[in-house]
Simulated assay, not measured.
Amino acid sequence: MIGTLVNVVAILVGGSLGLIFRTRIPERMFKIVFQAIGIFTLYLGVSMALKANELLIMVFSLVVGALIGEFLRLEDRVENLSELLKKKIGSKDDKFSTGFVTSFMLFCLGAMTILGSMEEGMGNEPTLLLTKSMMDGFSAVALAAVMGVGVLFSVIPLLIYQGGLTLLAALFGGVIPEVIITEIAGVGGVLIIGLGISILEIKKIKVLNMLPALLVEVLLCYIFLR
């Protein structure tokens, strides 16, 4: 769990610096930074998605996962959680929910999250997660400067998700083939593309409702690829 804890600290430090810079950045600069983050998010998603090979499994996982997420109303529940946190801390930041959700997705859906958690969970040095921590720390500066304090609170779901993956890897990591990890990262890449489209305000996509696609992908990969 060392890698995840360092990751949390890096985001908190970077996000805090971003909040300081936020008060000193002209409003017109926010929009261009926001667009830059959106374009990079698209690039990151495409680069991950192209590594997947089992496209039929990917499409089926996305469709079924989206239906499950829509039925469970995951996005509404997460937004309600973020609004609850916002009220608890007395924040009046109108971008709190956007910062919370966007940061969580960016910090948690990358290939380094999955591979790094597997690495540490299987007893190796958390090299990937430490590298990811440095990258996330710098990203948190820009995200918090644009989206506000919600970015800092994204460490809560990150700790649960990434820490949970590390614990699962400690229990089952030795039996998860690398090909399955690659395919999971591919689905994550598609979700990140959707996130990038939302950030750029091209179209609002309920990416959180598609998160169950990751679990469906794991199940189908175990059935057809082992």
Rank of each mutant, 00 (worst) to 15 (best):
L81C: 04
R28P: 00
G188K: 01
G65W: 09
L219T: 13
K92A: 08
A36P: 01
P26I: 09
I68S: 12
G186M: 03
R22Y: 08
I193D: 03
R77T: 11
K132D: 10
V207M: 00
L219Y: 12
P126N: 10
V187M: 05
V216I: 15
K203E: 13
V149G: 01
F34M: 12
G186N: 09
V9G: 09
L191C: 10
T182K: 13
G121M: 05
G163H: 06
S47F: 11
K204R: 13
K86E: 15
K204A: 06
F34Y: 14
L19I: 12
V46F: 12
V59W: 10
L55F: 14
G174T: 01
D136I: 02
V78H: 06
L106S: 08
Y222M: 15
F138M: 15
I180G: 06
V179A: 13
S47R: 15
Q35I: 09
L5Y: 05
C108S: 15
T4K: 02
A36N: 03
C221T: 08
V64Q: 01
R73W: 05
S61R: 00
T182R: 15
G90C: 09
L62E: 04
I2S: 09
S91N: 04
G121N: 04
V216E: 06
E83V: 11
V141D: 07
F224G: 13
L219W: 10
T102G: 05
F71P: 00
G99T: 05
L128Y: 01
S61Y: 03
G196F: 07
M134Y: 14
L215A: 15
G18R: 10
G137W: 02
L12Y: 08
K51I: 10
L5A: 11
S82I: 07
L129G: 05
K31D: 09
T98C: 03
K88Y: 12
E178C: 00
G110M: 04
I37E: 08
T182N: 11
I181Y: 02
G164R: 11
P177V: 13
L128E: 04
M48K: 02
L143S: 07
E54Y: 13
M118A: 09
S117A: 15
G90N: 06
E183Y: 03
M58F: 13
S82P: 09
I199C: 04
K86P: 08
T166N: 10
V59N: 09
G163Q: 04
G123N: 10
I156P: 01
L74V: 11
